[in-house]
């Protein structure tokens, strides 16, 4: 059988991902996680000295704490299998990527294992976040200097 012919056969047999179902699940779970985040924000604004502008930081940290608990008990991967991007895209997913790698590599010790592999999965997010922030700020600086836009 030729490769092209096989590719055809493979495409006929392989089911497409359930696009609609997957997007709906991602929307629902993602929305739910953000709603929980909103409740956490409200908690910090009501009982602590946070404003709408500053509440993002404690909210994110708390959500990552939740992610640690769920990851440690093996629940986050089950949510992930169900929700896909719904649980990967919120910061809890970023937390899950860091924490699961940390737990996984504990057996190689705290320095070489945990330290060396902590950002194995999430490192790309840090890389592209920082680099794009740098270039966008630089572009904006140039545009402002040229008088195209203002701050």
């Amino acid at each position: 059988m030729e490769k092209e012919q096989y590719k055809q056969l493979e495409q006929n047999v392989t089911p497409n991902p359930p696009y609609f179902k997957n997007v709906a699940k991602a929307f629902l779970v993602g929305g739910l996680i953000c709603t929980i985040g909103q409740a956490v924000s409200l908690f910090y604004m009501t009982f602590f000295d946070f404003t709408e502008a500053t509440v993002g930081n404690p909210t994110v940290a708390t959500m990552i704490f939740f992610a640690m608990i769920l990851t440690g008990f093996g629940l986050y991967k089950k949510i992930g299998q169900f929700a896909g991007a719904g649980s990967a895209v919120p910061v809890t997913g970023f937390g899950n990527a860091v924490i699961s790698a940390a737990i996984e590599h504990r057996s190689e010790g705290l320095v070489l294992g945990v330290g060396g592999n902590l950002f194995k999965l999430a490192g790309s997010v840090v890389l592209f976040g920082v680099v794009s922030a740098f270039f966008i700020a630089l572009i904006k600086f140039i545009l402002v200097t040229l008088g195209v836009v203002s701050w």
């Binding site: 093996g74 991967k77 999965l121």
Partner: peptide, 8 residues
């Protein structure tokens, strides 16, 4: 991926 990583 690590065992506890939640990928679909």
């Amino acid at each position: 991926y690590p065992i506890n990583y939640g990928s679909q």
